[in-house]
Design a protein around this nucleic acid. Structure first.
Lengths: 243, 243
DNA sequence: CGAAGGATTGAGGAGTCTCAAGTCGAGTGG
DNA sequence: CCACTCGACTTGAGACTCCTCAATCCTTCG
């Protein structure tokens, strides 16, 4: 959609502005160069394009360079379930590591680009570069931690809680990338939000409307401004399932 | 509680009857011996004993030898949330990899024992034994996959679906260990189940009672016999959130 | 401009939570 | 050996949240 100063196809890992978030953290310059050689860049995707399909052989993980993705699991009866959203600097595709086949389909939410990191080469390289192995363990650990956080959230049924959590999650991930923590665009549709949080699209709309009216956020379509972040945080922790 | 033929403290990884489930799969004999030397056995725990606490420095992952555990995340306001159940052969403790601190507390559900695998030594060894690295990537990938499966489930709010899922999950994990897939004891309390699935204890009780009356299962306290596994499976996939 | 998809808003109903009794079983102590 | 207590579980009735169904509005795009 718009050009990103430092994320053109030619940029290497050492100069990528997402470096701190992505793989190469805490690697020596020489190590980065080695990693650089296995990473395949480019691959621009349009909205609704699929990065990989559920059932595809697992060959690589992907780092989001620009844009955003959702991952969708399709159950046996054809039901779709959004299992995650991925913003720039985040890694997706790890759902295929266990079985060597992807269990989700990854879909671009807008015009997006990724770095493709072939997994067998990453494994080989990890043997040579212990820091890289450690880093990748951490990235997988982070995925586990965030999945479990979501499990905690979904177990507490309250539409307000769930919605507040998602807003704060995006806010926090934005600020990690040096973007505004209080003002952003939601890249996904209401139906994706609802599917992800286990709510209907109508409930999502109502909750957002309620947040808007009570002065928690400003809302115009997908554009969100967080006005009272403390109250939002209070909503997330203030569950109702406390025994 | 009772003696397990092959899981005494002296057993080494090569002879452990859980071998196929635990780390050492597809390792050469010599590699197994190396792994064997870093694994610390013993550590019997009584019911309600904690294996590690949320906030503890992350030093090791643990393989369940016998018994069972639950992991609990405690949110800022003291609310507890059950994030997982772990049966023999399964690995827990990976919640600490990302931040070097455990985010959950692990609690024994009954008299249990574990193998402790110091993580820095595992990392070192993984550099020397590529198969071990691969294996551990897979184990973490499996954790990610199962967490995402749970996310899918929790997003579809139906008490029957959730309960059926848990029963089938335990059934399937039992059969992987060579135990009965249709008859087992639930090691956890109703309150743990409810907390885990995002239901109240009353609803758990009612759903189990309903399953019992309709001939899906036989139920006596914690003892469960699955009578109509196909219908249970139908309940899990037959969601109601289909658009 | 009209169509189509996404989002909002409204009314009614189903399912689960809350609150409250009541049952069952295990462990304790007289 | 039995009464007692305590915790875990079961069962019931009413309230509330969210889902379902339906109409309308808005935006986008041909």
């Amino acid at each position: 959609m718009k050009a990103h100063c430092n994320t053109g196809s030619q940029v290497n890992c050492g100069e990528c502005r997402l470096g701190d978030l992505c793989l190469p953290i805490s690697l020596l310059r020489n190590d980065i160069n080695q990693l650089d050689q296995i990473v395949q860049r480019g691959r621009p995707l349009q909205k609704s394009d699929k990065l990989y399909f559920a059932g595809d052989a697992f060959r690589a993980v992907f780092a989001v360079r620009s844009g955003s993705f959702k991952t969708v699991a399709v159950s046996t009866d054809g039901e779709e379930q959004v299992t995650g959203f991925y913003l720039p600097g985040e890694i997706l595709g790890m759902d295929g590591i266990a079985t060597n086949n992807h269990t989700n389909t990854a879909i671009a939410l807008e015009t997006s680009s990724v770095c493709e990191i072939p997994f067998n080469q990453l494994e080989d390289l990890s043997v040579k570069i212990p820091n890289l192995q450690r880093r990748f363990f951490q990235i997988m650990g982070k995925e586990i931690a965030s999945d479990q956080e979501l499990i905690s959230l979904l177990s507490k049924n309250s539409a307000d809680e769930k919605m507040a959590f998602l807003l704060l999650s995006i806010s926090q991930r934005n600020s990690q990338r040096g973007l505004s923590a209080t003002e952003f665009y939601l890249p996904m549709a209401r139906s994706d939000i609802g599917n992800y949080l286990g709510l209907t699209i109508e409930t999502v709309s109502r909750v957002l409307g309620r947040f808007h009216k009570s002065g928690l956020i400003a809302l115009d379509k997908k554009h969100v401004v967080i006005l009272d972040i403390d109250e939002l945080k209070r909503k997330v922790s203030g569950g109702k399932n406390t025994p």
